[in-house]
């Protein structure tokens, strides 16, 4: 009875929740449960023959080296991009967060430019830039005498992941830089003043004054960057299609290929692809939770240190 009264009293609140919940229900929550459902079935997607196979798909995945390779590559991509992106962009942000630099906002604009452009489009542009035949990047390296033969950046398995990682960092560095700038600008001038009075500068200033203030931001930036690095489908699809010979096939390409792309007599396997998604999503979620717990712990420490 009390509950009903509460509902009645808050009816406008609930009403206001409705549009967002409907949208979220359709495209956030329903797909998760549906993916779990598909993952338990063998299904080509062509017809209505949905065969229940229980955990069969998961068992098959555990024994599928191509799945694990793709999984590993997603992790390599994550570990390859995130530190590089965060480190480089912090350096840039520190340099640009300087009122003396007249051209600061111009530089900022230039570095940010790739962020606003469609990633699939820039992926295609980069395939031309990196081409070993008359590609401008190889041309420049040859002219500078840094290499003697053109490098096949995207066609050799030993080069391809590094190449896509660099292009990815090029694409998104500007965004991380903006986040760092926002973080740096929250450090009030008075803090530097005070620090200077205490004769605290250089590494000590960073360690004891600036770092504690921007650390909570760093965790937010880390989280955002990591989410981004798992959504690399458009870049890799437009640059390499996952090739050569699986060498750049990350998780999302694996899922797309098994679920939709067909050729040479393979049948789309939506159930199997969904199971791969569930397994990958599950592991990522677990990692997130671990990270969140770690960040909460370190945040507590930082707060403790500053108060």
């Amino acid at each position: 009875m009390r509950l009903l009264q509460t509902f009645h009293k808050l009816r406008y609140h609930y009403l206001m929740l409705l549009p967002g919940l409907v949208l979220g229900g359709m495209f956030v929550f329903y797909p998760i449960f549906a993916a779990l459902f598909y993952a338990l079935h063998d299904w080509s997607g062509f017809n209505s023959d949905l065969v229940f196979v229980g955990l069969g798909n998961f068992v098959a995945l555990f024994h599928d080296p191509i799945f694990w390779d793709a999984f590993k590559r997603s992790m390599i991509f994550l570990l390859g991009t995130v530190p590089l992106q965060m480190g480089l962009s912090l350096v840039l942000a520190v340099l640009l967060n300087n009122q003396l630099l007249k051209l600061s906002s111009f530089f900022r604009t230039m570095v940010f430019l790739p962020v606003v452009t469609p990633v699939a489009v820039m992926g295609i542009v980069w395939t031309f830039l990196l081409s070993p035949f008359n590609g401008p990047i190889n041309g420049i390296l040859l002219d500078l005498g840094m290499i003697s033969r053109p490098i096949d950046f995207l066609g050799k398995s030993e080069n391809v992941m590094g190449s896509v990682i660099l292009v990815y960092v090029w694409k998104w560095l500007g965004l991380t830089m903006i986040y760092w700038l926002a973080a740096l600008q929250t450090v009030p001038d008075e803090v530097y003043d005070a620090a200077r009075l205490d004769n605290c500068r250089g590494a000590r200033l960073i360690r004891h004054v600036v770092l504690p203030i921007i650390l909570p931001f760093a965790l937010a930036i880390l989280l955002i960057s990591a989410v981004g690095a798992l959504n690399v489908f458009p870049l890799i699809m437009s640059m390499t299609n996952g090739g050569p010979f699986f060498a750049s096939e990350v998780m999302e390409i694996f899922i797309y290929r098994t679920a939709f792309a067909t050729g040479d007599g393979s049948i789309p396997r939506l159930g199997y692809a969904a199971a791969a998604g569930v397994l990958f999503g599950g592991v990522v979620l677990a990692l997130t939770i671990v990270q969140a717990l770690a960040s909460r712990a370190s945040k507590g420490k930082v707060e403790g240190a500053t108060t």
């Binding site: 081409s131 070993p132 035949f133 096949d152 995207l154 066609g155 640059m239 090739g243 050569p244 010979f245």
Partner: peptide, 8 residues
């Protein structure tokens, strides 16, 4: 073989 055939 032409360079870059594997991504072409």
């Amino acid at each position: 073989m032409f360079p870059g055939i594997m991504s072409m």
